[in-house]
Design a protein around this nucleic acid. Sequence first.
DNA 1: CCCGGTCTGTTTACCGAGTAAACTTACCGG
DNA 2: CCGGTAAGTTTACTCGGTAAACAGACCGGG
Lengths: 200, 200
Amino acid sequence: MPNRGDRGGSRTRAHIAEVATGLFLERGFDNVTIVEVAAAAGVSKVTVFSHFDRKEDLLLDRLPDVVEIARTAVRERPDDVGVVEAVRRTLLALADERHGLSVLEEGIDEFLRIVGEAPTLIARLRVFEHEVEAALAEELESDTRFTGDAALLAALLVAAYRVVAVATVRRRLAGDDLAAIATAHQERVNRAFDAIEHGI
Amino acid sequence: MPNRGDRGGSRTRAHIAEVATGLFLERGFDNVTIVEVAAAAGVSKVTVFSHFDRKEDLLLDRLPDVVEIARTAVRERPDDVGVVEAVRRTLLALADERHGLSVLEEGIDEFLRIVGEAPTLIARLRVFEHEVEAALAEELESDTRFTGDAALLAALLVAAYRVVAVATVRRRLAGDDLAAIATAHQERVNRAFDAIEHGI
DNA sequence: CCCGGTCTGTTTACCGAGTAAACTTACCGG
DNA sequence: CCGGTAAGTTTACTCGGTAAACAGACCGGG
């Protein structure tokens, strides 16, 4: 009789995500069913789906933040800084503060491993990649200071950073030293963005 | 009693794909179930899945060809032609001959519309995009004539061409004249590849 | 103060993609 | 002719995801 008084709305959502993440980290994404998550969270299956559209979102629920970061990186850049440079600086800054998006956050190794092992999570990330790209393209399109092919630039930026991030994840899973990884990460960001700005 | 003598192996595969494609074009991807496809092809559901891993592959079964095209474009380029230029030329040539990959083939409008309407097909294309990218990266990695970041270049090439192709598809769905679309397509290819070679 | 709507969640029942396993039937080489 | 293998079949199942009808809490207004 899970009739607790806290009908907290968004609190249950957070609670479900938390419980689910725990189970996934413990037993792997594909080895945990939605019904199990629901039971462990003291909630019904339908309730889970009323908070999260897809199973993958239970683990990747903070992904949407990335869209906002990308948008503001472009929108709030100084007048004398180009789009490529603005995004580059944002990414370098995120790396400095070991932000989750840079995959340099401490203690997320297990998380990265689980994600890498589940094809359906990878697929979700791919879709998400294009969501970020679309948001970026939209931002560029409506940017009076930018002239050029918005869709193309957005695609190149996202693709380039994804390549960098994937390489960084691999080194994390290999267990390398975090500081060394961070340095290499930033170097790769710089090389990739140099390539976009000045050609291969 | 579908016990026809032609136990043709790969012939049934082709037959299933053909029947399935017909149904999809007629009624939309999501409005046709695998069981219906199986029945229409005079075959059991399990047989369908023994020939195709996923429902989406019933419609997109010639996609793997693209990987081979990409690989040979890189592998068989002349010595005095760089990777970017080689891929560019291949894409322009495909456009000239109205090859399917260029989405300039005649009569595929309906096909493009169906694909665009089904989110799960789009998702499959995204995954496939990365398969091509991986193949390209592998090819570049083992190419003694190429020096540079293989993964990065592969990602940029694929992303750039996808942007071009998407734009072309949109014009096709808008019903524009095919010759005009083809010209614009090639111009976009050139602009995109110029950007990759010489910077934004 | 109660009435109605809205929000959160529940139950039940269902659909469709994909998998597993055990069985049949055709074909092919020795 | 015999035995193995490849192609299909049937049956039965799992799991993600959706639909619909319902129950209780909360809130605002008459």
